[in-house]
């Protein structure tokens, strides 16, 4: 109940923020621009629209999660609104979870709006609704939940600018870390292999949530990969949220 109250308040705060609409506008422009790009490119036009559209949803979703997530807790501390809030009968972890779910709800609605624009654009070209395209979007949403939790963690102890940089680094590293897997296979030294394995385990692999290519090109995906990705997302998000709670638990609000 208390988590829901804080979440709904966070949602209200987010939807009254102009930055959100600016990002939504640019994402819509990018999705629609995919049509223009498809005319200029040689190849299957529909595939180009799908590719650019999905990439736009993923990129602008991540920007929303980072830009809004990093200010979530910091703004409360900076504006001192946290004083009255934590003087009420609410645990600190409930406050954090409320903030997290509030932004997740905002992202869900934004992703839904972007998806509607994307599906409408596809419909004008194919004259049928391709529901399968929603699958990679669901995984984009899962990735955004993880990025939100990371932004929330940094927001607990750092300023929004630094938190944004850290979260953006997490996003970039997360999409490049799969290269380590190839490196581990190729490296001859056992010790170095162990080091890279440890690094790969610790670093996020956001490519686990990337099913865009498979869906756009109609490639088969074994069902256990979905399951693995879902479990990976839940476990990593949960782990980061627990870390955030630990950081926040004994923090003094001077």
């Amino acid at each position: 109940m208390k988590i829901r109250t804080v979440a709904l308040n966070t949602f209200k705060e987010a939807i009254r923020d102009r930055v959100l609409y600016l990002l939504l506008f640019f994402s819509a422009v990018c999705i629609i621009l995919a049509r223009l790009l498809s005319i200029l490119t040689v190849g299957d036009r529909i595939k180009i629209i799908k590719d650019v559209g999905l990439a736009s949803i993923s990129l602008f979703g991540a920007l929303m999660a980072i830009l809004m997530g990093t200010g979530l807790v910091f703004k409360e501390i900076d504006k001192k609104t946290i004083y009255t809030l934590l003087s009420k009968p609410i645990h600190r972890f409930q406050f954090l979870l409320g903030k997290f779910f509030g932004l997740v709800l905002t992202l869900l609605i934004m992703i839904a709006l972007m998806s509607v624009i994307f599906l409408a654009l596809l419909f004008f070209h194919t004259f049928h609704i391709e529901w399968r395209i929603l699958l990679p979007i669901c995984f984009v949403f899962m990735e955004l939940c993880l990025i939100t939790s990371v932004a929330l963690l940094f927001s607990c102890f750092s300023t929004p600018i630094l938190s944004s940089l850290f979260s953006l680094s997490f996003y970039i590293i997360g999409h490049l870390s799969w290269g380590l897997e190839t490196l581990i296979k190729k490296i001859p030294s056992i010790n170095m292999r162990a080091v890279f394995k440890a690094l790969y385990t610790f670093l996020p692999d956001l490519e686990n949530f990337n099913f865009k290519t498979e869906i756009v090109h109609n490639l088969p995906i074994p069902p256990d990969i979905y399951l693995y990705s879902v479990l990976y997302g839940i476990a990593y998000t949960g782990f980061v949220l627990v870390l955030a709670m630990l950081v926040f638990r004994r923090r003094d609000f001077i």
């Binding site: 004083y83 003087s87 609410i90």
Partner: peptide, 19 residues
Amino acid sequence: LKAKEKLGFLPENPYFYDY
């Protein structure tokens, strides 16, 4: 939380959710 349920607090220079 029982203590907080029976407590009211007004901070110095009140800062609230202005939206």
